[in-house]
Simulated assay, not measured.
Amino acid sequence: MQNKITHLFNIKYPIVQGGMIWVSGWRLASAVSNAGGLGLIGAGSMYPEVLREHIQKCKKVTDKPFGVNVPMLYPDIEKIMEIIVEEGVKIVFTSAGNPKTWTSFLKEKGIKVVHVVSSVKFALKAELSGVDAVVCEGFEAGGHNGREETTTFALIPMVKEQLKIPVIAAGGIGSGRGMLAAMVLGADGVQIGSRFAATKESSAHDNFKKTILEVKDGDTQVTLKELAPVRLVKNKFYNEIQELYQQNPTKEQLIELLGRARAKRGMFEGNLDDGELEIGQIAGIIHEIKPAKAVLNDIIEEFNAVKAFIHHI
């Protein structure tokens, strides 16, 4: 299955694993890369030296391409970028910030750069900044989200119409059917997060993985738009946010309620009541914890079967 994305990253399948905080360590990234996709280490939840350790461990267990996802709203960004260059990482996905800030620096070092966007406006800005591709992430996605509330399948064709560089679709894609639908609409590849969060190699806590299997439609919601919009499972902490909203809170009050390390508490430490549990709407079709390789194989098998079926209609 060769196309622009497989050529860009030198991978077998145009499937990128989401670089999710507290979920995407070296075990998951290497497993996806070894299975033919592009694994990403999620730097957003790592101190610089922890990231270095994950990159080094990943290099030991795969000779396939892998990358690092860097949300630019986190501190220590300069150290993180230095480590990425020092460790010879060849692919970086940036998000939550201006792509101009780091793209030229990374490109000068021979690194492929992809930026995550949630609108046509920001996709065009990313292309102008010189990125190699964009990820178009729709409102269905888990974790930090766009303010525009544009769904993935509305966003893909609008972005594709405007851009010359490759487009990767993300948000609400967790199956071969979803992958095929995204590519029919113009995507050159897909990025899948939630489905890989629920794998054996994911660094998520078992409590969180079990919760993913229980999530149904309507069990997640985007909230905290005044800070940074984030899709959460409706748990005790989510309910506390909604109760605070009834009082017309100030931004400072929301920050105080959020506190520190909520995502770590929920997804990494398994506190299902007081932690942030970030997952996408597509969790409703996830019913089993499998190895990452099996998940990727399932997606490709279904993609090929449905594509063949449509061809014969």
Rank of each mutant, 00 (worst) to 15 (best):
L257S: 05
I84L: 10
L128M: 10
E214G: 02
V114F: 07
H287D: 15
L296T: 09
G19V: 00
F309C: 09
I111L: 02
I84D: 05
L185N: 02
A187E: 10
Q162H: 07
N145A: 11
E201A: 05
I84Q: 09
S24E: 10
G176P: 13
I11G: 07
R195Q: 03
E240A: 04
P65Y: 13
V32I: 12
M20F: 12
G172T: 00
L38S: 02
L106N: 07
K293T: 13
I91E: 03
G174Q: 13
S118T: 12
K64Q: 07
L38T: 04
G42E: 14
R262A: 10
K57I: 14
A228L: 14
I165N: 01
G42M: 14
G146H: 05
I173K: 02
V117M: 06
H115L: 11
V32H: 00
D188F: 12
F139S: 07
K64W: 01
S175R: 12
I255P: 00
D217T: 13
V114W: 13
V167N: 05
F93P: 00
G97R: 01
L224M: 08
V92D: 01
S203K: 08
T94V: 02
H205W: 11
G218C: 14
P249C: 11
E127Y: 04
I192Y: 02
A204Q: 08
P71G: 07
K90A: 09
E53N: 08
S24K: 01
L185P: 01
E148D: 13
K60V: 15
T6D: 04
N239S: 14
L51H: 04
T151F: 05
A292G: 10
A29M: 05
I91C: 06
E127A: 06
G270V: 15
I286H: 02
I5S: 01
V70F: 00
I91T: 00
P71A: 09
G25D: 12
I299L: 09
G110M: 14
G19T: 00
V92W: 01
Q191K: 15
F196R: 06
D298S: 11
I156P: 02
V50H: 03
L224T: 14
D298R: 04
G25L: 12
K290S: 02
E201C: 12
V131W: 10
F153P: 06
K121S: 08
T150S: 07
Q221P: 04
R52I: 15
K79R: 13
A31E: 04
